[in-house]
Design a protein around this nucleic acid. Structure first.
Length: 990
RNA sequence: GCGGAUGUGGUGAAAUUGGUAGACACGCUAGACUUAGGAUCUAGUGCCGCGAGGUGUGUGGGUUCGAGUCCCUCCAUCCGCACCA
């Protein structure tokens, strides 16, 4: 019997499903292993071959851990709230829940075909009310918390209220936005509204008017990580800054811990660096400068170089800085206003691309350096950002290149505070050297000078040491329908949360998914979107005028809400009384291995860390990093196929109306073969032009080609699934696929009725017609082949082009494996008895290799090791049961279906191989008596010398030098030196 | 500009601690068998050369008996950040 993968795979998938082979139960007697892959957004396009890459690696590792005796949690679910389903709903009126359900069904079908060991009983979907009930609950916990800097953790808001009642906010050290100071007495005097407003400034999620990234095309605000180069990450739509009342998450409270926590994580440096960069910590000082003629005003600046404070020769404020209008003198009013206007017109994108161009405007005002009372001009300039630091810089042209450029452009004097450094050509930005011209800092090296300067500033009460972060609070509101509703209603403008027992607050039905006519989010279309505080239920807007009926929050939560904690829900997915039970989270703890894309570095991966730390602070879980080790799988790129269209402009001698229609380009279809000829040989191109011209003349004598040029060649994507093995596409397939437009192309210049395709590696995408689904490959080769092939492609982390050419090699390997167990007639042929030495060596070499590769998360070379093993056993004609049995177990993680089948053929109970024991490596079988020493002369390998492994260095040297070949390479000379590394190499230096 | 990653045959790649460069596979060449198949088997396959031999891991240099691996220089590609004070 041949290897019938279709029958085998179907049979075992059914067996696993029926017997719940992969159901996971908490078991305190076994060590736990939690392997997780980033759950997918179920898009309408289905899975392509890039998606399963990470899942396969994760599954292999999970199955491996299982063989190693671990109790394995390996779940899967869906990040099922999101924009595409909603956009589709807007277009078609189809409820996103329906689309989502259909897509999830398709994903599940595709995933099921690949033989994953997921425990599907633990599936979660973020759009499921039973799930988002707890997302809402966690939101409430965050709402009811503040960040206490003295304990360095989040605490319940009640502890803050108690403190306010006792001492006001005078002794509170919190991360907050509160701009007023008040005593206990003041607090008690405040009305409820005022108290709530103040608390809002302390809550870890808060409602505030903030500058947000507004994307008109998507009709929603976006978080900073969702904006890339000034346009939306999804769809590439323009984004503008807008002041809006929004929910935000006070992630900045965790900036330092998010930064420090990275140290302990086993993540790639790339991702850690991206997060560090995003958090953007800089240490320095804040200094207050006085303003001449404005005794009551001070300008606070942040600087990382307080040591250069005597080198300050001007000050620059952001155009939006609040003091600008106050301090600008009458003389400069108009110029300043004009500059502000101009700066305001520039989009963020323009400002970014226009870095080189220095602009600014003098305000007429002067600041006073608090250390030497020197008068310095105050400018405004758009290189200073309102949103970073204090929106003002003390400009030190000798030590900062941008300040230097600015001073140069506007002829502002440059003071040098660095000893023996030339600053005539540019600023000196190194943090080394000695400070001079700086009063008490003279003669100090930079580092000491920084400390000394801060000390002095603090002493004089004009500044203090300060740490600044680039990280901003994350906007948490989205003006969309398909997301978690907030469990919040507004009682006379005061945001109040709905009690836990009434959660989840389910998404209301709406008749359309667009914003309302007065510009409110889609939930504004819902009729039953009012909260009745007497009945404790949602009610209709008809009752809106009743005093106990209040409007609900109209925004929904962003996509990252549900994904910030999903890994916890898998532990206890059906719990109705808690988001996860204490016992279960204490057992499973955090994720041991997380596999997913690197593109979530500043989004999901940061937010999930933030929420985890928060949940730890509030005592709900006992760890503060969600993902201990992470591997970022590389993108699988598509291998796009191309044909080319040569557009030749047609010119008519007679310029009368009827000829205009002939003036559209004459299009010649060119394939790769013709293209190379055209490029390499000018004659071919001239030939072609001549022939085309002839054709035109036949049609109408007045027509000719206008400046034919090979540059007017345009590639067109061809569906890669129509490509044949030899890299061509048949005329019929092509014309059918392109459709009626095909008639416009002249194809006479290609022979054979088939077209040679050109290729280019690009991102896999529907629009490039280069998407390949796993389904076809599973159909053609089987899931085991697909699994092994995806691993065989190369290192997991690396981006690599998808190419099915090599898949035969892996498929052949499985067939060869199959033949090891069968005779020529296809009957099972396995012998009992003691295995021979050679076979044992092959097996144990393989065990060692697989073990080592798993330990360092390398999957491609493990596949090679299996191939080598089977090649050797085939050569040895080994069909010994003991050997084959261990081999089958080794193979379970990679090719579970065939392993199950062979396991049964070996006489074992069906369905038990997943819980077999990983074979023990035994060094003994690898011990050899002799070793073939490579003998090099001056580092060049010349020949090999087979010598006993236990031979001493001296004897090896003697033996080798006595050899005939050695004499040949010595050419009669005496060796200067002979290096012998026992069991490794011999190198002769001549 | 700053930070990170990667550069090895025709292709995907391997070389884990400085020790035989190209394992394994695809492709290709030649051959065997054959109820022509997307089957199996044998031999070959980095480049130059008939050959002995030479040469070879992006470039140039260095350390070393020995460098794909370590150090310095430069180049290319990709990713992230970018007037961050």
């Amino acid at each position: 019997m041949e290897y019938d993968f279709r029958a085998i795979e179907q049979k075992w998938r059914k067996h696993w499903a029926e017997n719940k082979t992969y159901q996971t139960v908490e078991n305190p007697d076994k060590p736990k292993y939690y392997g997780l892959t980033m759950f997918p957004y179920p898009s309408g396009a289905g899975l392509h071959v890039g998606h399963p890459l990470g899942y396969i690696a994760s599954d292999i590792y999970a199955r491996y851990k299982r063989l190693k005796g671990f109790n394995v949690l390996h779940p899967m679910g869906y990040d099922s709230f999101g924009l595409p389903a909603e956009q589709y709903a807007i277009q078609t009126g189809q409820h996103p829940a329906i689309t989502t359900k259909a897509n999830v069904g398709r994903y599940r079908e595709q995933l099921d075909k690949i033989g994953f060991s997921f425990d599907w009983d633990r599936e979660v979907r973020t759009s499921d009310p039973n799930y988002y009930k707890w997302t809402q609950w966690i939101f409430k916990q965050i709402f009811e918390s503040w960040y206490n800097k003295s304990t360095d953790k989040a605490e319940h808001i009640d502890t803050l209220i108690a403190e306010f009642e006792k001492n006001g906010n005078l002794q509170v050290s919190a991360v907050h936005d509160c701009e007023i100071a008040f005593s206990a007495e003041d607090w008690k005097e405040f009305d409820t509204k005022k108290q709530n407003d103040i608390l809002m400034d302390y809550r870890l999620t808060y409602l505030a008017d903030s500058w947000v990234n507004w994307c008109p095309a998507l009709g929603t605000v976006l978080a900073n990580d969702e904006v890339v180069n000034g346009v939306s990450e999804r769809g590439g739509h323009p984004v503008e800054q807008k002041l809006m009342r929004q929910w935000s998450m006070r992630i900045t409270a965790y900036a330092e811990r998010l930064l420090q926590g990275l140290v302990e994580l086993d993540w790639s440096d790339a991702i850690k660096d991206i997060q560090r960069n995003w958090i953007g910590k800089s240490v320095g000082a804040s200094v207050r400068f006085g303003v001449e003629n404005h005794e009551n005003e001070q300008i606070e600046v942040f600087t990382t170089r307080p040591d250069t404070i005597f080198g300050v020769s001007f000050m620059v404020l952001a155009p939006e800085h609040e003091l600008v209008s106050q301090i600008t003198t009458a003389e400069y009013k108009e110029a300043v206003e004009n500059y502000k206007k101009e700066a305001g017109f520039k989009s963020e994108r323009d400002r970014m691309s226009d870095v080189k161009n220095v602009t600014g405007q003098f305000t007429g005002a002067y600041a006073v350096n608090p250390l030497n009372n020197e008068k310095i001009p105050i400018w405004i300039g758009d290189y200073v950002l309102a949103s970073y630091g204090t929106g003002a810089v003390m400009a030190v042209p000798c030590g900062d290149q941008r300040d230097w450029d600015f001073a140069q452009k506007f002829d502002i004097p440059i003071k040098n505070v660095f000893e023996g450094v030339d600053i005539s050509e540019g600023a000196y930005t190194d943090k080394t050297g000695t400070i001079t011209n700086s009063d008490f800092l003279n003669g100090l090296p930079v580092k000491k000078a920084i400390k000394r300067a801060i000390h002095e500033l603090e002493e004089k009460g004009i500044g203090k040491s300060k740490t600044n972060y680039r990280l901003r609070d994350a906007v948490f509101s989205r003006q969309r329908y398909w997301g978690e509703p907030f469990p919040v209603y507004y009682d006379n403008g005061v945001a109040k949360t709905i009690a836990d027992e009434h959660l989840p607050i389910e998404l209301p039905e709406v008749d359309k998914y667009l914003p309302t006519e007065d510009g409110q989010p889609p939930l504004g279309n819902a009729t039953d979107w009012y909260w009745d505080t007497q009945k404790n239920e949602l009610t209709s807007k008809e009752y809106a005028d009743q005093s106990h009926v209040h409007p609900m929050e109209l925004n929904t939560m962003p996509g990252w809400a549900g994904s910030s904690w999903y890994f916890l829900r898998y532990m206890d997915p059906h719990n109705e009384t808690a988001f996860v039970s204490k016992e279960k989270v204490d057992y499973w703890k955090n994720v041991d291995l997380y596999i997913g894309g690197a593109e979530h570095a500043t989004g999901h991966l940061l937010y999930a860390r933030f929420w985890t730390k928060f949940l730890k602070d509030r005592g709900f879980i006992n760890f503060e990093e969600p993902f201990q080790k992470m591997i970022n799988q590389g993108m699988i790129l598509g291998n796009s196929a191309f044909l080319y269209v040569l557009n030749l402009k047609v010119e008519s001698k007679i310029r009368i109306k009827k000829h205009f229609e002939n003036q559209k380009p004459y299009q010649v279809l060119v394939d790769q073969k013709l293209l190379s000829e055209l490029k390499s040989n000018e004659g071919t191109f001239n030939d072609l032009i001549e022939k085309v011209t002839l054709k035109l003349k036949q049609k109408d004598d007045n027509l000719s080609l206008d400046n034919p040029d090979l540059k007017d060649l345009r590639p067109i994507h061809i569906n890669v699934n129509l490509e044949r093995q030899d890299g061509t596409i048949l005329l019929d397939d092509l014309s059918e696929w392109i459709g009626k437009d095909f008639a416009n192309y002249d194809i006479d210049f290609i022979d054979d009725q088939k077209f040679v395709l050109g290729h280019e590696v690009e991102k896999m995408s529907k629009s490039k017609y280069n998407v390949q689904t796993p389904d076809d490959l599973v159909e053609q080769y089987g899931a085991d082949t697909l699994r092994m092939y995806e691993m065989f492609l190369g290192p997991l982390e690396q981006a690599k082009p998808w190419d099915t050419k090599g898949i035969n090699g892996v498929h052949n390997f499985l067939r060869k494996l199959w033949r090891l167990f069968h005779d020529a007639e296809g009957n099972v042929k396995i012998t009992e008895g003691e295995p021979d030495k050679k076979a044992l060596k092959t097996l144990h070499k393989t065990i060692k290799k697989i073990q080592e590769d798993m330990d360092r998360y390398v999957f491609n070379t493990a596949v090679s090791a299996f191939m080598i093993c089977v090649n050797e056993l085939t050569e040895q004609k080994c069909n010994n049961k003991a050997i084959l049995q261990d081999l089958v177990v080794l193979l379970v993680p990679y090719a579970p279906h065939i392993a199950e089948e062979l396991w049964v053929k070996l006489g074992n109970e069906a369905g038990t191989v997943s819980d077999a024991t990983f074979p023990e490596f035994n060094e003994e079988y690898l011990v050899e008596n002799t070793f073939a020493y490579p003998v090099s002369f001056n580092g060049k390998m010349r020949f090999k010398a087979e010598l006993p492994t236990n031979m001493s260095k001296e004897d090896v040297e003697k033996e080798v030098m006595a050899m005939e070949q050695a004499q040949k390479y010595l050419e009669g000379k005496t060796p200067k030196k002979v290096i012998v590394v026992p069991g490794r190499i011999v190198n002769v230096v001549v």
